[in-house]
Amino acid sequence: MLKDSKISHHRTSSVQNANCVVMVPPKEFKFNAETAGDNEFQHQLDLTNDQVTKQAMSEFDAMVERLRSEGVQVVEFDYPLSGTETPDAVFPNNWFSTTPDGSLYTFPMACRNRQCEVRPEALIKQLQESGRAVNKQVSLEHLVENHTYLESTGVMVFDHLNHTIYAALSQRCNKQVLNNYAQRVGYDRVVSFSTALPGSNSPIYHTNVMMAVGESFCVICDEVIVEEERRFVLKSLSKDKQIISISVDQMNHFCGNLLQLETASGQKVIAMSKSAYDAFTPAQINQLSSHGKLLPFDVSTIEQIGGGSVRCMLGEVFLPKK
């Protein structure tokens, strides 16, 4: 059943949009058989590994360059290689999150080769060199031992202005760990819900492929939320957000996988993939454009093979400046 978990805790002040993101180059990127079990967005392409790497790196470099030219700070985390390949390292938003008080959280990941992506010491060093202060590191990774997972902003979509976390429950989003994390960061409202994909009836693997929350808008594929919980979720969002409802087909083109950011000068931009941009209707493009400059990126190789898109490639940095 749907839970609107009330947890009282000291609140930290917050803003909705980050003006700095971590991005990880896809040096080992390829189809990840380990994650394909519950990620219906992944597809094998008829390309060699070298072709995949070349195309993915080209898409990544173009996205970094454009974000920087628009005034968004990009911390390029060129992570050290280890004995285990990390084909999904290009999606760093699943293993860490940051808060304005200078905390860096690391999370329990469901797949073994994705657990090897978690390199907090190297990331902290790079963040500090980029002028961001990390005052505290909190690790939730030990929860992997209990087979309980919480894949950060892949499964948690934040409404920072209302101290609310939206989350589609799945094997990658454990309800108890979710509520515990909300309590730790002082977010007193958790709206968790169940989803079912048409055809397979499987839950959505990551909330951020079906919904995105901006400062005053929300994009959501509400038809995948189970019927008895759908109205509650929409009612919660509609209090102060313009709701842009997308179809399952649009969700499959990653229309739900976008992120509103801020530039150094405070301008709003909305990062999304070109396939998402092309799948929105003209009316929806008009609605989105009223909330910020739209930045479509061609990441077709990454999103088809990896089953994640632009939002997954962006680890938001809310840490204070040093």
Rank of each mutant, 00 (worst) to 15 (best):
E141D: 13
E141W: 04
H142L: 13
V144K: 01
E145S: 14
N146I: 06
Y149K: 01
L150E: 08
E151H: 07
T153W: 05
T153R: 00
G154V: 12
V155S: 01
V155F: 01
M156C: 12
V157S: 06
V157Y: 04
F158D: 05
D159N: 13
D159I: 07
H160N: 11
H160V: 01
L161H: 09
L161V: 05
N162P: 11
H163Y: 13
H163E: 12
I165T: 07
Y166E: 09
Y166S: 03
A167R: 00
A168L: 10
A168H: 04
S170V: 11
S170H: 05
C173A: 09
N174I: 08
N174E: 11
N174L: 10
N174A: 10
N174T: 08
K175G: 13
N179E: 15
N179C: 11
N180P: 04
N180M: 15
A182P: 00
A182Q: 01
Q183G: 12
R184P: 02
V185T: 02
V185G: 04
V185F: 09
V185C: 07
Y187L: 03
Y187R: 02
D188W: 10
R189D: 14
R189V: 14
V190W: 04
V191F: 12
V191C: 13
V191P: 01
S192Q: 03
S192Y: 00
S192M: 02
F193S: 00
F193D: 01
F193I: 02
S194A: 11
P198L: 05
G199L: 06
G199E: 14
G199A: 08
S200K: 00
N201M: 06
S202N: 12
I204C: 09
I204P: 02
Y205H: 06
N208Q: 02
N208F: 09
V209Y: 01
A212K: 02
A212H: 02
A212V: 04
V213Q: 08
G214P: 02
G214I: 02
E215D: 15
E215N: 14
S216F: 13
F217A: 13
F217M: 15
F217Y: 15
C218M: 11
V219L: 07
V219G: 07
V219E: 08
I220W: 00
C221D: 03
C221H: 01
C221T: 07
D222E: 12
V224A: 08
I225E: 01
I225Y: 01
V226L: 09
E227K: 15
E229W: 05
E229I: 05
R231G: 12
V233W: 04
